[in-house]
Each structure stands twice: as C-alpha cells, then as structure tokens.
Design a binder for these strands. Structure first.
Lengths: 205, 205, 205, 205
DNA sequence: CATGAATGAGGGTTCATTCAT
DNA sequence: AATGAATGAACCCTCATTCAT
C-alpha cells in the first residue's frame, strides 16, 4: 500500500518533471526557430524522443506554447503585482517594474522571445485571448505609472505618454532577443544603465 | 510608330506596375501574418488572382520577400549614405539618421515589419546573406556615430555604447509594428519626440 | 483579286510551312527530353515564341505528338507497302525492309525516338489507337516474312520466329537513339553490317 | 531477454521488409507508367497507403528510383565481375555475360525497364552520375570482350565492334520490356537462342 | 512511456490551356 | 500571329496528429 503510494507519488513527480523538461526544450526551440516554423519533430529531436511521443505528454503543439506562455505570464504578473501593491512612489515603481522585467527576461528568456515574436499571431486564436488581456493590463499599468509621474512633476509633460509607454515596452522586452545570461553585463547592470538612459537621456548634462 | 512606342512603353510600365502592386500586397500580408505562416494562396487572394498566377511574375515565395527586402534596404542605405556623406557633426548626424529611419518606416512599413520579424530566420539562407551584411554595416555606422559623440563630449561616457546602440536599434525599428500613417502623430513629430526622449531622458530637469 | 489570291496562297503556304517548322522543333524537343517531361514552354522556347502562341497552330500538346507520329508512320508504311508489293523473295524482302527502316530512321529520327519511348504510354489513349494497329501490322508483316524464310529453307528452323521478330524489331528501331546523320557510318553501311550480323552471325566461319 | 531480442530482430527485419515491399511496388509502377509520368500517389495507391506515408520511408520520389536502380546495378555488376574474374576465354565470357544479363532481367525486370527508359533523363541529375559511370564501364567491358574475340580469331573482323556492342546492348536489355517470368520460354532458353542468333546468325548454313 | 507507421489536410510549385489585346 | 497574363487542376512534399504495439 505504502509502496504503491510511493510509486504513484514518484510517478506523478517524475511525470511533472518530464513535462517541465519537455516544455523547457520546446520553449528553447520555439524561441530560436519561431513557433510556426518549428516542427513537432524538431522539438522531439531536441528532447531525444520521437515526434509522436510528445502527444503522450501534451495534447497538441498549441498546448505546449500555451503552457509555456501561461507559466511565464503568471509569474511575471505575480512579480508586478507585488511591486504595485507595495505602494512605492512613481519613480521607485518605475525602476522596480523595469528591474522586475529584466529579471523575468533572465528567468524566462525563451518564453519572452516567443511572447515577443508570436503573441500577435497567436492572439487571433480564442485560446490565447489571455495574451490580449495581459497586453492591455500591461499598458494600463504603465500608463498609470507614467501619468502619476507626470502629475507628480517627476516626468516631462511635453512628451506623449503613449509614446513613452511604447518606447519602454519595446526596448525592455526586445532585450530578450539579445540578452545572454553568460554575457558581459549582468541583468542588474543592464537594468541600471537602461533606467539611467531612459530617465536621464544619453546626452552629457 | 509613335503608337507602337507608346504601346511598348505602356506595356513595360504596366508590367513593372503590376509587379510592384503584387509586391506591395505580398508585403502587407507577410507583415501582418508572418512570412512563414502566410500561404501563397493568401497572398494571391489578397491580390485577387489565383495562387498559381503569382508564379508568372515571381519565381517563388522566397523571391517575393527577397525583392521586398532588397528594395527597402537599398533605399534605406541610399538615405543613410547621404546623411553620412554630408559631413554633419555627431549630434546632427544622430538626429538625421533617426529622422531618416522614421521616414523609412513611413514609406516601407510592411517591409520594415518583415525585416524585423523574419530576418533572423531568413538570414540562415545564403540567398539572404545581404541581411547579415546590412545588419553589420548598420551596427558599425551607429557605433561610429556614438563613439564620435562620446569623444566630442556630447554623449555620456558612463553608458555602454553597445547598449545604447541596441537601445536605439530596437526602439526605432520596432516602431514599424505600431506606426500607422493615418495615426495621430506624423512621422516627423514622432521622430522629434523620440530624439528628445533618447537624448534628454524623460525626467524633468 | 489576284493580289488577294496570291496573298491567301502565300498565307496558306506560309501557315503550312510554319506548322511544319514548329512540328520539327517539337519533335526534336520531345525526342530529347521525353514527351511527358517536356513542357509546352520548352517547345515554345525552342521555337522562339511564347507558350500560348503554340495554341494558335495546334489544339494541344497531344495534337503535336499525334501529328508527328502519324506523318512518320504514314510514310513508313508507304515504303513498307511498296516493298511488300514488289513480290521479292524472302531474303530480298528481309533486306529491303531493314534498309527501308534505316532510311526511315535517317529521315524521321526524332519521330522514331518518340515512337520508341512513348508509344507504350500513349497507346493507352484512344486517340492513339493507331499505334497499336501499326504495331500489330508490323508484327504480322515480319512474322510472315520470317515464316516464309523458314518455309523456303533460308532461315534456321531451330529458332523461335517470335524471338527473331522481337530481336529485329528492337535492334533496328533502337538504333534511332544513337544514330547520327553526321556520324562516321552512313545509313546504308549500317544497314549492310546490320544485315550481315543478323543473317550470318558474328562468329568467324 | 530472448523475447526482446526476437522482437527487435522482427522489427528490424519488418522495417527492411516493408521498405523492400514498397520499393518493389514503386519499381513496378515506375516501369509500367514511366517515372516522370507516375505520380507519388499512384505508387502509394498501388502500395495501399496514402501518398504522404511514403515519405516516412523515403526522402523523395527521386530517392525511390535511386534505390531501385542502385540495388539493381550493384547486383548486376557483382555478377559481371565474377564472370570477368573467372578468366574464361572470349567466347565463354561472351556467353556468360549474356546469360547473366538475362538472369538480371528475370530478377530485376522493373528496375531494368526503368533503367532503359529513364536513365538518359535521370543522368542529367548529379545524383545519378553513377548511371553514366555504369554505362561507360559496361561499354568498356563489352568492347574489351569483343576485341579479344576478334584478336583470337573467334569473331568476324569485317564488322565494326562498336556496332556489335550497341547491337548486343540494345537487344539484351530491351528484352526486359517484353520478357515475362511466366511466359513460354524460360530465361535460360531465351539466352541460349539469343546467343545462337547473335553468334551464328539466322540463316541456314 | 515510447515507438513506428500511417493519416490527411494543406502548402509551394508546375504546367497545359485560355483569351483579350 | 503572337503576346502576356491568368486559370485551375494536379503534383511533390511536409507536418500535426493518431494509434496499435
């Protein structure tokens, strides 16, 4: 009985572990080749199993990206929510959000790349409607921070906040496509320089 | 005689015109659906002809993107080269290059989107080796401008110019994915605000 | 009036001439590339016109081979018939038929090659039922000559005449695939050696 | 353990068997309809599977003919090489080569037919350069045998050996197009009569 | 859990053919 | 007579997916 229980526990844990392994592999491949251009066989090859075998673990190719993106977004929002809930001032919030973003990139690089490259196309599928929701929520969050910054007199009022928002969104996330964990600059240093650049500009003062 | 000449002129012009028309349509579709995910039939549908008919004008789907990208890049570089050749100071060069970039986006939006989204994958194909060349040349051009800016004491020396370069590259081009010709802000205004943001930052001074 | 007549005569003659020219070109191309593997465009290219233009002269690609083969077969049979009708002895008939065959090859090489390579497949099409008829008539003609040879004591009786027939048929016609008008051996010399070989064998006596 | 071994043996054998089965089917269809004119679907229909399924076993239609022809040629040359290596006299070599050829036809009829009909066109493709090599080697082998025959005084000197070579080549192989395993004459009898015909001629002596 | 074989829809491409000019 | 553009069926091939073992 206890043997059986241990067995099933082991099995369940192993199954979950295998699942995570396969998802990590899939994310890597999707990120580097592009979701649409990646064949299920390529994912399977990278995981050293046969194409059909993936279907024991996942319902479909779509289900794989779905899980990859959901997990990433859930974690990202949990981090953002903590920042928002901590009641910081506009500037501190700004910096914390950007730092959190770069941390996300560090932890979920492949997922972020997929998100960047594919979410526009995936979003047309009802299954991925949460991508649209997330994007909208993201926009509202940032605009609220930026507007607060303008109101508080911290941010320049002569710039379109919509433009600033896009500016930030684009540069932060696109970093996922070139950021390497083993590169010369650690995530925190990149975040620091990035924040300096965005806040103070690149001109000498 | 003159009738014949006009005829052949009309014919030649019509032919080139049709080609350009089809390319414009294809660029639009590739940009919105993604090159790999777009079927030749979708392009044909958008052009109101049958799939096979495209092959009267183009050798292959690949030949279409090739032409779309080559034309855009040729024009872009001709604009950049003029700026470089005009012997402006570092700051003026900086501003002129960015303004030219936004003008390119305005004129070649779909091509720029395709360039952004697909060039990484396309570049693995020898046929598109010019994409790699262009990217390298682009990088060298910007680094040279930025380094000159630092040397001249115009740009901050405490930031990694490689990071600034990527920062600029990403934000400028990614604008193609949201820029609309009929949007509220004209290209020049966007360029102006963008330059202000990058040079002076978004903080109040 | 007379001008008009001369015109229409000229036109009709020219049309027939053009037709023959195009057919000769088509035969050459079909022979060298294979009928099925040859595209209408390839024929047109060889004739220095556009693909669609061929349809002014011929109803279809099929109509072209049809005409090529019919003309050749009609001429061949007219030659054979003369031989048969001339009441020669078995051996003289044998030699005359073979000589006639090599003459045909000389005059209609491309048509003969097409006949050799494609008639089996074409024959499944009712339009080309005459190919089957011709083959059967050919077989009967030769068997009759060979049987007469055996009866007259001229040909060996220990060989299957069916086998001899195939033997002759194959070697004679297949020569079309390697025979060149400008080669070292003229048609008559080839016929002579060929006849010697078949009749007397290749051993020294 | 032994069960597992038997399993894997069975599997491997079954796999090779299936491959061979499919190749045999393909060869049959290619031979009867012509390679170019045969669609992959026709092959699949004949094998009672769907068109796409063939691509699980073979890379392409081309890969199928390639394997069909390579296997046949390899076996043929292994047989020829044995004959050549056995150091027989000119006449015995002659007879042995022809007998071997008819045996090849018996065993590889469809492959031989394909070889006859398609090798000229296939040979333009670098992948099939071995066809050209084989033809050249074949020619050299025969000319060497024939020349030896003339030198030894066994063969007539008044005939062009190049012509004899073509004569033999054509008649032997073309037999594949009419030879039926279940026909009235067994391969050895055909070879015997064929050799008699070629060596001694068809005239009474 | 994984394999091997097959499915079947659909994708890029070719090509005989048509037709207005 | 010939052109140039288009048609549409069919072709080779790919790939997500299924399923018996």
């Amino acid at each position: 009985m206890s043997a059986r229980r241990r067995d099933s526990q082991t099995t369940a844990a192993a199954r979950a572990g295998r699942r995570a392994e396969l998802l990590a592999t899939a994310a890597e491949v999707f990120a580097s080749r592009g979701y649409a251009a990646t064949t299920v066989r390529e994912v399977a090859d990278a995981a050293d199993i046969l194409g059909g075998s993936l279907y024991y673990h996942f319902d479909s190719k779509e289900a794989m990206v779905d899980e990859i993106l959901s997990v990433f977004l859930a974690d990202m929002w949990s981090a953002y929510d903590k920042v928002i809930a901590s009641g910081l001032g506009a500037r501190e919030t700004f910096e914390a959000l950007i730092t959190e973003s770069f941390r996300c990139i560090e932890r979920y690089r492949p997922a972020v790349v997929i998100y960047q490259n594919e979410s526009k196309h995936l979003a047309t599928n009802p299954r991925f409607s949460y991508l649209v929701d997330s994007q909208q929520r993201f926009r509202e969050m940032w605009l609220s921070v930026l507007d607060r910054g303008v109101t508080d007199g911290i941010l320049r009022a002569d710039l379109d906040t919509g433009l600033i928002y896009r500016f930030i969104r684009d540069t932060v996330w696109v970093a996922a496509s070139w950021y390497r964990t083993d590169g010369p600059l650690p995530a925190e240093e990149i975040a620091r320089q990035y924040i300096a650049m965005v806040l103070e500009g690149i001109l000498t003062t």
